[in-house]
Amino acid sequence: MSNIDKETARSYLLEMSKIRHFEEACGRMYMQGKIKGFLHLYIGEEAIAVGAISQLTNQDYVITHYRDHGHALARGMDPNKIMAELYGKKGGSSRGKGGSMHLFDKKLNFMGGYAIVGGHLPIAIGLGLALKKQKKDGIVLCFFGDGAVNEGEFHESMNLAALWNLPVLFYLENNQYGMGTHVKKSSAAADILYKFADLYGMPATRIDGMDVLTVQDSAKEAINKIRTNGGPVLIEAMTYRFKGHSMADPASYREDSEVKQWEDKDPILLFKEYVKENNLLTDIDISNIENEVKVIIQNCLKFAENSPLPDMSVAMDKIYYSDN
């Protein structure tokens, strides 16, 4: 495992804590009725977004599924705009027209959260195709879950990426449940999902998605391969969502013991232990980071609360592109 410096340690802990606290705040605001509709929390999976996105440059694209807050935050999206979007307010990233599942930030090449399982994989292929045609150096980091692997679009996209040698990192976040159905009940290849890549001649690896440094190292290696060879790579990160599929899901299909087993691998707790053992951060540093995160979360809630509601002109705007 690679050694990291203090600044990187601080950054990883800050980013993971920011996601954790943001998501916890979302959960509370959902219970208060401030946030409505579907809300899918990323709690437990923070190491993946932070570790993988840390290895990108500005020119790279990120595209993801509907559990997208973590990826958006890790890519640098403004928490104020995200929270206001969840509140359905005018100050939101899409002025309240996207919602939790559809965050976008073009300036960051964050190409969106998509809510039809597997539907954004072909779009990721297109982003890669454009990079290739434009002779640009960027890559596409495409997150998806174990549920998407059973969609035809996954296989169509894997084939196209390999056939056309496109710079796409297929990032499979295997949290082991497609909504409430365990991966073993939905895939005949549940134990070896990453091996689908073999059939398309694509390098692939399975990693521990609860350890941010493992995520960082494997992403770095994969991205180097893509930048060197041009072609796609797949990573399967084993992870777990600590909460239900969405706020509407009490997760009664899981044993408490299973949840406990994964909570013991909490990526933030594990990383805190690591940085202390390796003298990267002190208890005071950690407490400072937590205070910093608290302020960020308080501010975004205040921003969302104070943001005005959109009027109907917003609803009727940007249905079609127009020059004026």
């Binding site: 899409s94 027209k97 559809h102 976008f104 930030d105 073009k106 969106g112 705007d317 940007k318 592109y321």
Partner: peptide, 8 residues
């Protein structure tokens, strides 16, 4: 185009 409020 709509969901991104015109960004894309």
């Amino acid at each position: 185009h709509y969901m991104s409020d015109g960004q894309l």
